[in-house]
Every structure is written in C-alpha cells, then in structure tokens.
Design a protein around this nucleic acid. Structure first.
Length: 373
RNA sequence: GUGCCUAUGGUGUAACGGUUAACACAGCGGUUUGUGGUACCGCUAAUGAGAGUUCGAUUCUCUCUAGGCACC
C-alpha cells in the first residue's frame, strides 16, 4: 500500500509510493483543493494539463450540494467531475473549526447548519463514512474535532478523546462499507500544541490502525515555529511505514520544513485562493536551488497582478510555464482581466499557482533523491 | 431673453448655523494555511468662484459661473 523508496541522508525526508485504486502516488505530494467538486474555475481538461497526482474534495460541502442522490447517480465524485486522478475527501472535521459558529458538538457527532439554506444536519462518524463511500474517494478521512491549537488543555483533551472515539467508529463503519479495503482510511492526530496530548492521540490511533496518519489542528492560528515544534516530535513518532499527511498546509516554506521532518502529503487553499485574489507564485532566478529556510525558501517570489504597475507590463505571465495560456498572455492583459473581473483571470492565475506548487513538489522529490533536502 | 431649480472627493449620495463633513462604488496597497470567485483590513480623495450676515457659513443672503426644467 505504501512503500518507501528512499530516505534522505540530510533530513527525515523520504520518497515513497502510495497505492490507491485510481493510481499510484509519488510522495511527497500536494493535493489541489476541489472542495465542492471543482478546482475553482478549472475544467477537467485544465486539470489534466496540470497533471496533479491527486485532488481533494469535502464531505460536508458535497453532501449539502449536490447531495448524495446526485453523486450516487453519477457513480461517485470522480465520475461526476470527469476526473481521472485519485481523490482524497476531508471528513468535515475542519468545518468543526471553520464553521464553529454554526455547529453543535455532540458526543455522537456534530450537528452542522447548512451554509446554503440554514437547515441542520447531523454528521456522525458512521454517516461521514457512508457519505465518503458514496463519493467513492480513494483516501477517506475520519471525522475529527479540529480545535484552535491555542485552546486550553481541557478543551484539547476533550477534542482529542472525541476524535479517537469517532476514529474507532469510522474504522468499524468503513469495514462494513468497504470490506476489501478498496479505499484507504486515515486517522487524524489532534492535541494542539501539547506534546503529551499529541503523543497520546497518536498512540490511540495507531492502536486502532489506519492506512495513513494525518496531523490535524495545525496552521490554525499558531506561529510557524510552534507548528514546526509539533512536527519535530510528532512526525518521527508516527509509524514509519505509513504515509503522513499534514492537513491544510501550507506556504511553500511550510511544506519544505514539514518534508524535512518526514511528512509525505499536503493540501492547502493558498495557491488557489490567493490566485483568485491576484497573487501569483513565480520562480526566481535561483529556483530550484537547494531550498533554504530563508523567506520564500530563497527560490520564489509572489506578485500581486492587480497592482497598478502591471497595467503596463507586457512581459509574459510565466515564461517558464508548460501551459500555453501562461506563455502567450502577458501580465498587462491578466491585470486587465482582474480589473474587469472576468472569470478568465481566475483561471489563468489558478493554473499558474497550481503549476508552481506541483513543480515545487517535483523538485522536492528530486532534492530528496539527491540527498539535497 | 424671462422665471424656477440644482451645484459636496473620480462617480452616486448623506449631513449640519458649532468637534476631525458621513456612506457606497471607483482608485491605491495589504491579508488569506483540511476554500472566501461574492471575504476581510488599511490608505488616498470633496463643500463651483467671489462677497455679505454671524463669535462661527458647506448650511442663510447677494453676485458671478455652469447645468437642468418651463415659458417666450
């Protein structure tokens, strides 16, 4: 299921292959986000041109819209999207955190209010697994309780205990729904910034046994240093022969620091969300030199294409791109597209940033192979 | 030509004889970590011109200028 092919001599970084029913994934990898069943503004053709290894969808959002009936009729999320890549679905655990104002935490699950029509829906561990079964995602996540990493220990402990209890239920339900273990199930480590709680959470999950382990509840308000400190001890304590997934992270420098600490999988809204707000990730002249811990790893820069100075910049959006659009359109034009709020602006910027992230991951893998990371 | 009405940032509107003239959009810049395209946070920017009344006028009066409407 997961095989490590190379361990860096320079750090805890490793190369591996994760097998899923829809394809094999070279780790470390990054998952572009398609929460609602679309990488915002991109068609399946655009996605194929980018060639991600895997994309990410969301249980809560897809359950509300289009709903299970439609997904079932379509034959699963990938068929619905005409997507040929593996899919990981998040459980809705993050919505416990991000939608904290419109949810109620119960001992048997979470009651969420729909962001569409205000109706209430109970998400139990069992139900979340049923939904993911219909979505037929290659990698499924247990329902967890993601809390603010700076919460007090009592709250963290409660979140952790619920997470563990629910993880057990998720595993049991998954066995019923998918006895041949066609799709993978990952547990999620919680515990905030508390070492003792983190390690307890991990060992409880390992005892239950999962196909992979995720680190949740990070990048939710703490500093980078605090996050790295957690990774320092939790990553090395995780089973070596299972993939490690740092949920929701991050900026390129965060990803590099996590890879050095032995993390294999990432997802983040940054490249896509920031694209829609006009920020483009671009290689600088040192790319892909050995990634340093300097700001922007010393190898990339960002620009805000909406800035007035680009109104007159007729240089190409991205001369290094493999994508025709980014090599043929210039910055002044993209600036204009943002000013007139044309959807093409979002698509071009999104293509640029995802391409950057995927290329970054390729170079990270190359660097590990050469013991340079 | 006569009468009436109007004049506030780039645009559209508030306000009041009395603190620093408010709001929206536009403009300029920033934020974003298991999604925020519709989000969030800053910044810039105005009382048409002149005179009078008044302790104090963007507000009241007059003249001018510009625009609108009606009549000839």
């Amino acid at each position: 299921m997961f095989k490590i092919s190379k361990e860096s001599k320079k750090s805890e970084a490793r190369l591996g292959v994760l097998k899923t029913k829809s394809g094999n994934l070279k780790t470390p990898f990054f998952m572009p986000i398609a929460t609602r069943g679309v990488i915002k503004s991109l068609s399946y053709q655009d996605i194929e041109n980018l060639g991600p290894q895997i994309i990410l969808g969301n249980t809560y959002h897809l359950y509300l819209k289009p709903g299970l009936k439609i997904i079932k009729k379509a034959g699963g999320l990938s068929k619905f999207m005409n997507n040929k890549f593996p899919v990981l679905t998040d459980s809705g655990g993050f919505q416990v955190f991000s939608l904290s104002k419109i949810r109620k935490l119960l001992t048997n699950g979470v009651r969420f209010q729909s962001t569409y029509d205000g109706s209430w829906h109970l998400f139990t561990p069992e139900k979340v697994m049923k939904i993911q079964s219909v979505l037929d995602s290659d990698i499924q996540m247990v329902l967890d309780v993601c809390s603010d990493s700076r919460s007090n220990n009592r709250k963290l402990l409660k979140a952790l205990e619920l997470t563990t209890k629910w993880a057990q239920k998720c595993k049991r339900e998954k066995k019923k729904l998918d006895p041949k273990n066609k799709n993978l199930l990952f547990g999620i480590v919680q515990g905030g910034l508390n070492k003792e709680l983190r390690l307890k959470s991990l060992s409880d999950l390992v005892e239950i046994g999962f196909d992979g382990y995720a680190i949740g509840g990070l990048a939710v308000g703490e500093t980078n240093q605090e996050m790295y400190k957690v990774l320092d001890y939790i990553s090395s304590a995780m089973p070596k022969d299972k993939p490690r997934y740092l949920m929701g992270v991050g900026y390129p420098e965060n990803i590099i620091e996590a890879v050095k600490r032995g993390v294999d999988m990432f997802d983040c809204v940054i490249p896509t969300r920031e694209a829609r707000h006009g920020r483009l990730y671009l290689k600088n002249k040192f790319y892909p030199a050995p990634f340093s811990s300097k700001k922007r790893c010393g190898v990339y820069k960002t620009i805000n294409i909406i800035n007035a100075k680009f109104a007159n910049d007729f240089s190409l959006i991205n001369k290094d791109s493999k994508l025709e659009e980014l090599k043929k359109y210039n910055k002044a034009y993209l600036h204009h597209l943002f000013k007139v709020q044309d959807p093409l602006a979002l698509k071009l910027a999104t293509l640029n940033n995802i391409e950057f992230y995927l290329d970054l991951m390729r170079n990270i893998r190359k660097a590990i192979a050469g013991n340079n990371l």
